[in-house]
Design a protein around this nucleic acid. Structure first.
Lengths: 223, 223
DNA sequence: TGTACATCAGTGAACGCGCGTTCACTGATGTAC
DNA sequence: TGTACATCAGTGAACGCGCGTTCACTGATGTAC
């Protein structure tokens, strides 16, 4: 009766949910450029002023467009944020899933496993740093109720993918425990990545290395 | 010449910074009640609609006050959020610092250290859960540029406090490394706490336990 | 213990600004024949 | 290869709403003597 495959998230009561889907997708090359220009401009503005100050009129002004040009593709600013969030999450998820599928989680020695996880952590930091407005988008994905599902879904997809590899690597561990552990590890990894991106004055290399050490010692106790 | 005691944070360029300080502090008992009513109402609203939808007019309406009553004490909604954020951070920080000062980080056996850290993690989760709007306030502290300093400062205070204990516990470890490790551990602990608070459907007990295991194994490698 | 006065606390009503959004339109691009 | 027409893309100008904020005021509380 009860379907426990996908966990039920606690529903947020009574928050007005704005439409998020993009309206028209651009068909002509010119329109595609406009679409991308809107996203790029929004990313840059986000970086400067934060997502709360961001307005559709401001995006249009900064992009040199009239408001109806934006409204042709996006029903509101949340749809713009959603598109940006989707892209950032996809960029990171694709990379980390490819890494796992290529055997990133496995390794003959402690040092090998450590080096592999260090490489992917650094890559993830680079992706978010290079993404225009990546920092602000990451924050928005946490803070804006309607955008949180994007982040949750991304985590779920990565966790489900990792879980398959984890079961193969640690067959003697209770699968229920391993599932939670996988999910938690991913969440904390992303938190560490955010910490590095968020505070560029701190020593990113040390943090990256210590986070990977932290996980490596932990997983060394699994079998 | 260079003062390296407090790390310099990267300044965010050109974001308009609203005034955050409370204006008048209430003097009479009646005024104190109003002040608290505003904060309590704002906390409840935050929980329902998120901080972006929150407006001063809405707070007043929900609290049964006229707008000038709010403006007597707070220059804008960010000042309300700041007060809430300060209180939440202080509540958690006081608890965790008291725990550390009472020897929370030390322990004769692995099991003892594990049990102690588990206790404080659970306590921290409870504090944020019980705080009205605690979840939304935590998010706002991450996402609203002007509020981020509150969170950073809180982390710095806790980290500085922990560091003293850590040096005594692990005298053979390079202090520079230990400093970063301490800061990272705190950041990730708070991230785990947020994860538990944020997703009440997941098994909080397992996550709490595994996070503490994670750190315990890691610190077992220090000396 | 009462009265006069100063200060504190909160109200009712309104303001101007800028936000999200739309209308009626022009110009650009693609396509049928 | 050119023309007519349909569709796509973007503009200029304006709208109404509600947000943050303020003004002039009334009522409540505290205090001096």
């Amino acid at each position: 009766m009860t379907d426990t495959a996908t966990p039920v998230r606690a529903r947020r009561p009574r928050a007005r949910k704005p439409a998020l889907a993009t309206k028209l997708r651009p068909r002509q090359a010119r329109a595609q450029d406009t679409f991308e220009l809107i996203l790029e401009t929004a990313g840059q503005l986000l970086e400067r002023i934060g997502f709360e100050q961001l307005t559709t009129n401001l995006i249009c002004e900064a992009a040199g467009l009239s408001p109806p040009a934006l409204y042709r593709y996006f029903p509101n600013k949340y749809a713009v944020l959603k598109e940006l969030g989707d892209r950032l999450m996809r960029a990171q998820d694709d990379e980390v899933i490819a890494w796992a599928d290529a055997g990133g989680l496995a390794g003959a020695t402690f040092e090998e496993r450590l080096a592999k996880s260090l490489a992917i952590h650094e890559r993830m930091v680079d992706i978010q740093r290079d993404f225009p407005g990546g920092l602000a988008i990451g924050r928005a994905l946490r803070a804006v109720p309607v955008l949180q599902d994007i982040r949750f879904r991304s985590r779920d997809v990565v966790a489900a993918h990792f879980f398959k590899h984890m079961r193969a690597l640690y067959p003697a561990t209770d699968p229920r425990r391993l599932e939670v552990v996988t999910r938690m590890t991913i969440e904390l990894s992303y938190a560490a990545i955010e910490m590095v991106v968020e505070e560029p004055d701190r020593d990113a290399d040390i943090i990256n290395r210590e986070v990977c050490l932290l996980f490596a010692h932990y997983f060394a106790t699994f079998s």
